[in-house]
């Protein structure tokens, strides 16, 4: 029961299938995300949420189906090219650059997004962070609450802070679509609530679309406009959070509750 793709969709995923050794991790999934919309992607472990994320980001190539961003097909496009189109992402297992400090994470992200890294500029010593870059970095760090740790190496940070670094790294690239994969994992209740508020705020301020994979349903309910539920590689329900969670199929498949 996939949502019918509509004309103004920012991201359109159509009949995407990805198998691993004969097992369909994602099986004919279709859904779309409108510009500025916040979509929660939920489901039990092994439902195929992260695999779908990887297919959208280009880290996995689906066997079937098409993925479009702003009407442009992403099929065959490398991960870095998709990132430069404005797909930002955080990861289920934290992926930070271990020998960099927090500030450098953001600078490298800005330069990669807008292709500002040039060998000749490096050789001519023209690659120092500009005032504009520093300003933007400070603003994003302030937003996620990492200003006091800007010059700290990420290897000295805890898991929760690393997740914030990942988020800041994605946000500074001003993505048109932010894909957050279990961002609250490793955070305490207070931090999770703050993160939810940050996500909601940046999504509204920057007008970006967001797909949120999250097991903390309270956070999902607070942040997203619409919820898509996956189970065993397929979309089993979608709509408003409360409606979806009341769906007997979802209660049966996701929550393990039987009517």
């Amino acid at each position: 029961m996939a949502l019918t793709a509509n004309a103004e969709a920012l991201l359109r995923v159509s009949e995407v299938t990805k198998t691993f050794g004969g097992v369909a991790a994602v099986d004919g999934v279709s859904f779309s995300v409108r510009p500025g919309e916040s979509v929660g992607l939920v489901g039990p472990n092994g439902a195929g949420k992260t695999t779908l994320f990887n297919c959208v980001c280009g880290q996995l190539r689906p066997e079937r189906g098409t993925i479009e961003l702003n009407g442009r097909s992403l099929n065959g496009m490398a991960t870095f090219e998709r990132a430069r189109l404005g797909i930002g992402r955080t990861y289920q297992r934290v992926e930070v650059f271990s020998d960099m400090n927090v500030r450098d994470h953001l600078i490298v992200s800005v330069r990669a997004r807008w292709r500002q890294g040039r060998l000749w500029r490096d050789l001519c010593n023209l690659s120092k962070p500009t005032a504009d870059e520093r300003e933007r970095v400070d603003a994003v760090l302030d937003l996620v609450g990492l200003s006091d740790r800007a010059d700290t190496s990420v290897s000295a940070l805890g898991l929760g802070s690393c997740r914030l670094v990942e988020l800041a790294r994605a946000l500074i690239a001003e993505p048109v679509l932010l894909m957050a994969d279990e961002p609250s994992s490793g955070l305490d209740v207070h931090e999770t609530r703050e993160l939810g508020a940050v996500l909601r705020q940046v999504q509204r301020d920057q007008g970006m679309a967001m797909i949120l994979v999250e097991h903390d349903l309270e956070m999902v309910a607070e942040v997203v406009d619409r919820t898509v539920v996956m189970n065993l590689g397929q979309v089993v329900a979608e709509g408003h959070f409360d409606t979806v969670m009341a769906d007997p199929i979802v209660r049966s498949a996701y929550l393990g509750l039987h009517e």
Partner: peptide, 25 residues
């Protein structure tokens, strides 16, 4: 100069996590 410049940062990102490096472009 390469190490302290953009290319050095990109290489640092690649060393740290090639997955995340390609994910940011």
């Amino acid at each position: 100069r390469v190490r302290n410049g953009s290319i050095g940062r990109f290489l640092g990102a690649m060393r740290g996590s090639s997955t995340a490096a390609s994910g940011i472009g």
